[in-house]
């Protein structure tokens, strides 16, 4: 068996503050192939964001390593673009400037100014945000901000796209709309994606595999579910698809029967 594109090997994380230590993650092992769409699902506080931040290089792992394209991850970088839970656009820049900042930084040497402009516009087109390119984040809706966040991440041409509950704060309709956009972009570009979600339907609809995490502390991967649904997927047709329903109930069973959320705090 050859090397996987992204491989997470025996990763563990222990936070220590003062004298108190909490082991948040232990023995996380996961291999992701190029172009795969992986969802991570688990109860609140189990350490999903922590795992994503370790892959991003924003948080160092206590044990284990993350290898991306045969290189060890040691610090953050644009090859692992993150879309943060709360969009984190810079409010003093316009939509265009937010994306352009990333483009300028990543392609300063390899693209001319004109080409960087075109690339910025191209990515805004991908998420259908060209019309608001001169608006500031405060002037656009939550869904639009999330789109721009995705455009900024895509514009870095990352090896792996990391999404931390990208649609968490959105209403159901906007969420569905954005999920369709992301599916379409994934189909066109073939990115490798890791997405954290709380939403079972979202996980089944978008993913090739669903990683289900046990409750913390010392959370680990409880189960990995293959989603054997052909692409392109249509949400309306899937509603009655037996394979879809089977996946859905498998995730629900895992979350609400075997690893019921115990009120910790």
């Amino acid at each position: 068996m050859g090397q996987s594109y992204l491989s997470i090997e025996q990763v563990g994380k222990t936070f220590s503050r003062g004298g108190a230590t909490t082991e948040v993650l232990t023995g996380i092992d996961l291999k992701v192939e190029r172009g795969e769409y992986i969802s991570i699902i688990g109860h609140s506080g189990c350490g999903k964001s922590t795992l994503l931040n370790i892959i991003a290089g924003l948080t160092p792992a206590t044990t284990g390593v993350v290898l991306l394209d045969q290189r060890e991850v040691s610090d953050p970088g644009p090859d692992r673009a993150v879309v943060f839970q709360n969009h984190s656009l810079l409010p003093w820049l316009t939509v265009y400037e937010n994306v352009r900042l990333a483009v300028d930084k990543v392609f300063r040497k390899s693209k001319s100014a004109a080409a960087r402009h075109d690339w910025t516009m191209h990515n805004l087109e991908l998420v259908q945000m060209v019309h608001a390119k001169d608006k500031r984040p405060a002037e656009i809706s939550g869904g639009m901000k999330q789109r721009v966040g995705i455009a900024r991440a895509l514009a870095m041409e990352p090896k792996v796209l990391l999404l931390d509950e990208p649609f968490g704060a959105l209403d159901a309709l906007t969420r569905a709309h954005l999920q369709d956009s992301v599916m379409q972009i994934h189909a066109t570009l073939g990115n490798t994606v890791m997405m954290i979600t709380h939403d079972v339907d979202e996980a089944v609809l978008l993913s090739d595999r669903i990683v289900m995490m046990t409750n913390g502390p010392s959370a680990r991967i409880g189960e990995i579910l293959d989603v054997p649904l052909a692409r392109p997927r249509k949400r309306l047709e899937l509603v009655s698809d037996p394979a879809y329903l089977r996946c859905r109930s498998a995730v629900l069973k895992f979350l609400y029967e075997r690893h019921r959320f115990v009120e910790a705090a």
Binding site: A56, G57, L58, D75, P76, G77, P78, R80, A81, V82, F84, S88, L90, L101, A102, K105, V106, M156
Partner: peptide
């Protein structure tokens, strides 16, 4: 914002 800066190096 700091994380954005770090990802962008």
């Amino acid at each position: 914002y700091v994380n954005v800066a770090r990802v962008l190096r």
